[in-house]
């Protein structure tokens, strides 16, 4: 598949910056498992990661971790309850 014309679209596709009506050709390549485009997308994802990670870190308040822990406990208890019902 000829993919050179798509090379500049990989990052924008991953960032959902291509409006409807654009990017259709890339999707065709991806749905056909085009190895060039999949490789291009993988490499573009590294650039996109680097862009996203340019945000300055912000330390969360301790309460967030406590709430998360309580939420996971609740999920585990529900899952355990479902398992016991099945058993």
């Amino acid at each position: 598949m000829g993919c050179q014309h798509l090379e500049d679209e990989y990052e924008l596709y991953l960032l959902a910056a291509l409006p409807a009506g654009a990017g259709g050709d890339l999707e065709l390549h991806l749905s056909a498992q085009c190895p060039n485009c999949l490789q291009g997308l993988r490499e573009a994802a590294e650039s996109v990661y680097w862009l996203i990670e340019s945000a300055e870190p912000v330390k969360p308040r301790p309460a967030v971790k406590s709430r998360l822990a309580a939420r996971l406990t609740e999920r585990n208890q529900k899952a355990e309850g479902r398992r016991q019902k099945k058993g």
Partner: peptide, 11 residues
Amino acid sequence: IAPRVLGVIER
């Protein structure tokens, strides 16, 4: 890694 993740979200 939570500070980094929160940095992205808050930005």
